[in-house]
Design a protein around this nucleic acid. Structure first.
Lengths: 195, 195
DNA sequence: ACTTTAAATGAACGATCGTTCAAGCTATAT
DNA sequence: ATATAGCTTGAACGATCGTTCATTTAAAGT
């Protein structure tokens, strides 16, 4: 004796993610959100609690999508290093034209929020850390296959890679003229500290 | 027959910059600003026009302060490469504890704002470009002194350096444990594409 | 068919947003 | 001393913010 919610939770969160990704936490109002996900305030609050609840769900969805993307690329039968490079190109190059913002949503969130929203900040940090851990696993494999230098540890290289991705994606938004991003990424993997 | 404004414009903008730097454009309200700069709304609007006007003045002040800092370091008699390294350490390491945010205010602004605030975005982009140009001038000198590889052009290296600084400063905020930032910067200048 | 129960709705709340402006105040010129 | 010019003040504006909840709707159980 009940009634099931009719909205598609996955699609709703995907739409919310796109809006938050584009406009940021403070730049997005609940009314913006209502339009983007086609839900009325009562339903949103019943499902997510409040504005922070929707944002938290979006951060987790975004991170999960990134890891799913990495797994999908891994399934293509590429070498660990090639898979990693393909993922970076996807994250950096494709998001220039196909994404709400060229900047990584997690990096944007960490840059935007203060201790005033500690929980959201923590979720974003942990999400970024879990992606970085996936990088480290791939790098470890690449090192075992002698495809990447072992001068630095896999976790150090994963950290280095996060820094490069964050820098590239943010810089891409600062530049009006198009950048040779794919070439810059090839260059990246061909030199220190990867080779 | 008149009356001079009694506030110190420079100090007011410095305080506004610190607040905007910490909380971002959308995270800062005019009432936050009124408290931080100790001015009443009428005086603020007379001096700056509106909220965007204060933000624009802050962006320009921030960029000017960065270039002044670089010039100050250059006056210390260091080599061009040493000066550049000292500046990067100042920007990356010192801002971890002595600044409103570890993240560069210009990068934060570019990540936060959309085309909805085109003018502010343009100001931030141009400011970052002018800092990058100062890098290029120093790098050119370092290349002439054979202190930096000439494999890549000075402007390419300046771009590369901006990407590293943006990446490092953002990553620093994502990390709860302290990072060996100074060492990472030394490492940066000792390898490709600088050497 | 009827009852039950939970989901969906959207008007409305108090708070806060960016901004305005009439009134007050004070330094300067006469 | 007085008049004048213009900076300073802060109450108040309409708009929008995040959020609530009484009401309506409709699917599931009998």
């Amino acid at each position: 004796m009940s009634k099931k919610p009719k909205f598609e939770r996955e699609q709703v969160i995907a739409n919310a993610t796109n809006l938050y990704w584009e406009k940021g936490y403070h730049g997005t109002s609940m009314r913006n959100l209502q339009d983007a996900i086609d839900m009325r305030p009562g339903s949103i609050y019943a499902e997510f609690g409040n504005k922070d609840g929707v944002f938290k769900a979006s951060l987790e969805f975004y991170a999960q999508a990134a890891i799913a993307q990495l797994n999908k690329i891994k399934a293509d039968g590429l070498s660990p290093l090639e898979a990693l490079k393909a993922f970076v190109k996807h994250a950096v190059v494709d998001s220039q034209h196909n994404a709400p913002s060229s900047v990584c949503m997690l990096a944007k969130t960490i840059a935007e929020l203060t201790e005033e929203h500690e929980e959201l900040l923590t979720v974003a940090k942990q999400a970024l850390k879990s992606v970085e851990h996936q990088f480290a696993l791939l790098i470890e494999q690449a090192q075992e296959a002698q495809a990447v230098s072992s001068q630095k540890s896999a976790s150090e290289l994963a950290r280095f890679l996060q820094i490069q991705i964050t820098g590239l994606r943010t810089y891409a938004k600062t530049s009006d003229e198009p950048l040779p991003l794919a070439q810059m990424i090839d260059d990246l993997f061909e030199h220190y500290p990867f080779q």
